[in-house]
Every structure is written in C-alpha cells, then in structure tokens.
C-alpha cells in the first residue's frame, strides 16, 4: 500500500501506515456493522408462517372436497381428520387414535373413521364404537367462510 509499483516509498514517515490502519479499521467497522445488521434484518423479515398459529388452520376449499370422504390436515404438530359426510356435513376430529397413537382414516365403505393398526372404529361423532380404542376422538370445530374450510380447537 505504502509502496508504489516501482517499490520505492511513496510517502515518507508514518502517514501511509496510518492510512492503511484507517482502511483496516474502516473496513472492519463496516464488516462488523454488516454482521450485526444482517441477523437483525433477517430477524425482522417475516417468517414463512407469519405468527404462532395453533388455534386454527385452513384446510382448503369446501367445494373441492368430495362428499363421503375424509382427509388428514396438519394442525400445528398434530394431524386432524376432516370428514365431509355423506349428508354434506363437515366434521373434524383429532386424527390420533386413542389406542396407540396411529393416524386414523375415513372409510367410505364403512361410513366411519377407522384405524389401520388395530381396527379401531369411531363413528362420525368421534365416539369409539368398536375395537381397542378406549376413548373417543376429540372433536374440532369446522367453520366454512367463503368456501374456505377453517378448523379450530373446540374451546
């Protein structure tokens, strides 16, 4: 820095060295500012899921769901089974079997909720009607807003 191409000292004394120090200082100050600002800015950027959402979840279009069918919806960290009954009602239950925590499914041929692990059966009010499940499934609330299915916890 303090030497030119020919290798001779361009400036006498310590002035060039101070400049060099100043560049280092300025550069590292800038880098430091960036390394502080970057996490902060990244933090400020809204995450994909913009807020803690454990109270309700959207489950798609009501008109897109066939009658007499069921689907598993992710509700926070838990699966929820959404059933569109043959009579046209929407119902949602915790999809975790109360026997040994398998995920249940809707059986069109039986018209009820069925667990593949041990043949546990629940009717469409969530009641355990056959097989080993000791307890009924917890019901969730289903709301249809502008054709959008909203599942929320029953409070």
């Amino acid at each position: 820095m303090n030497k030119d191409i020919s290798g001779k000292e361009q400036f006498p004394g310590t002035i060039p060295r101070r400049d060099f120090l100043k560049y280092i200082f300025g550069g590292s100050l800038l880098a430091w500012a960036l390394s502080v600002l970057y996490p902060i800015l990244a933090y400020l950027k809204p995450p994909k899921q913009p807020e803690v959402e454990v109270n309700s979840v959207k489950a798609g279009k009501a008109s897109a769901m066939e009658k007499d069918s069921g689907t598993i919806v992710k509700f926070g960290n838990k699966p929820v089974i959404l059933v569109h009954t043959a009579s046209g009602e929407f119902k949602a239950f915790s999809a975790t079997c109360t026997h040994l925590d398998c995920t249940v499914q809707y059986r069109k041929d039986m018209g009820l909720i069925w667990c593949a692990c041990h043949n546990g059966r629940y009717d469409l009010t969530g009641r355990n009607v056959a097989g080993p499940p000791p307890k009924p499934l917890i019901e969730y609330r289903v709301l249809i807003q502008n054709d959008e299915i909203l599942i929320s916890k029953n409070t």
Binding site: P39, I40, A42, Y43, K45, P47, K48, Q49, E51, V52
Partner: peptide
C-alpha cells in the same frame, strides 16, 4: 416460534 421459525430468533 421465535427460536425455531424466525431467522436468527434463537440468537436474539
């Protein structure tokens, strides 16, 4: 949520 979903939330 801050610790897992927000970038650098754990750090802050």
């Amino acid at each position: 949520f801050i610790m897992s979903k927000v970038q650098f939330g754990w750090l802050i």
